[in-house]
Simulated scan of single mutants.
Amino acid sequence: MLFLYNNSGKKANCFSPPDKEGIFLRKFALKFDSPYNIVMLEKIFGSRTRVKLFRLFLTNEDKEFFVREISRTIDEQINSVRRELTSLEKVGILKSQQRDKKKYYKANKNFELFQELRSLILKARVTQERGFIQSIKKLGNIRYLALTGYFMNNTEQEVDLLIVGDISRDKLNKLLAKFKESFGTHLRFTVMPHEEYVYRKDVTDKFLYSIINSDKIVVVDNLKG
């Protein structure tokens, strides 16, 4: 069962409207099959670079990015990025402004089909995450698995995955390398045995509590068993 937690540690109301990151949608869609995937999106949008740009801007709708930053973030050639940015701005999906000799791009939330495009991208992301989660569960005995950081659009969080249990780090690294292209980034993780988790929690370990108190999606929680 999946639980959504806010930074106060309380479970979110399942009947509340989606928040601006669309986490509500992703939480429930993770349980069900979705017809969207990266291949389908490439066919719809025309190129992998464009798909990555959609994912970047539509899941960070209030954030601005400059060209070189975008190129590094989505790991695509800068000329390809510039070409797609120009096209998306002409269509009206993106808007830009010049500041400090740099051109910054941002999602245009007033674009007529903004919400529909955002929903499509989020559903595609859910499909990737669901497959990723199932693969992680096969790596060993996992007592606790939480998705944070990247999965919650929190760039300040130090890790994206917290895993408590007995799994092979080598196998996990290989799995992360396999999914790197799908997510567009290398996910950061922390793995600890149950005994270490209990000890760190008892001594109020700062690093552990920075994860516990952050927004997160808890996928597995068998710590009390």
Rank of each mutant, 00 (worst) to 15 (best):
E76M: 14
Y144M: 03
F28A: 10
N222R: 10
D62F: 06
F24L: 10
F15T: 09
L187N: 02
R83E: 07
V91H: 08
R26I: 05
T204F: 15
F151R: 07
N37D: 06
L175W: 01
L120Y: 04
D100E: 10
P35D: 09
T155F: 00
D19T: 06
N154W: 06
I142C: 02
D215G: 07
L88M: 15
K180C: 07
N6W: 11
G131W: 04
G22Q: 01
I136K: 02
L117T: 09
S16F: 11
R68W: 12
R26P: 01
D160Q: 09
L85A: 06
V203F: 09
N7K: 11
F65P: 01
Y209L: 15
Q128M: 13
E196G: 00
M1P: 10
F15I: 06
Q98K: 12
S87Y: 15
L56N: 05
I212R: 13
S34Y: 00
E156P: 11
L117R: 06
V198W: 01
L176Q: 02
S87T: 15
Q128E: 15
D221A: 04
L139C: 05
K201V: 00
L85Y: 07
S210V: 00
V51I: 03
K201R: 13
T127A: 08
R200Y: 07
F179D: 09
L162F: 03
N154H: 12
K95Y: 08
M192V: 01
T185S: 11
S34V: 10
G165C: 04
F132D: 05
R188E: 01
Q97P: 09
D202A: 03
Q98S: 11
E195G: 05
K180N: 11
K43W: 07
S96G: 04
R125H: 12
I44Y: 12
D33G: 13
F28Y: 12
S96Y: 01
S8T: 01
R55L: 00
L88E: 12
G149M: 03
D33T: 11
S119M: 15
N79R: 14
Y209F: 15
I136W: 02
F28I: 07
R50P: 00
L175H: 07
E129Q: 09
K216R: 08
G225D: 15
I38Y: 07
S71I: 10
F3V: 14
R83N: 07
I212W: 05
I133F: 02
P17N: 00
I121T: 01
V191L: 11
Y197W: 05
L139T: 03
K63M: 13
K106F: 08
G140T: 13
S119N: 15
D205T: 08
P17W: 03
F57K: 00
Q134V: 05
D215Y: 14
P35L: 15
K171V: 13
V219T: 13
K103V: 12
S80V: 03
V67P: 02
R130P: 10
F45A: 04
S8R: 01
K216E: 05
P193G: 07
T155H: 00
T127L: 06
A124G: 12
L122G: 08
S119Y: 15
K216M: 01
E158L: 14
I23E: 15
F3N: 14
E42G: 12
K171L: 10
D170G: 00
L172A: 03
N108P: 04
L117G: 00
R99W: 05
R118I: 07
I167S: 09
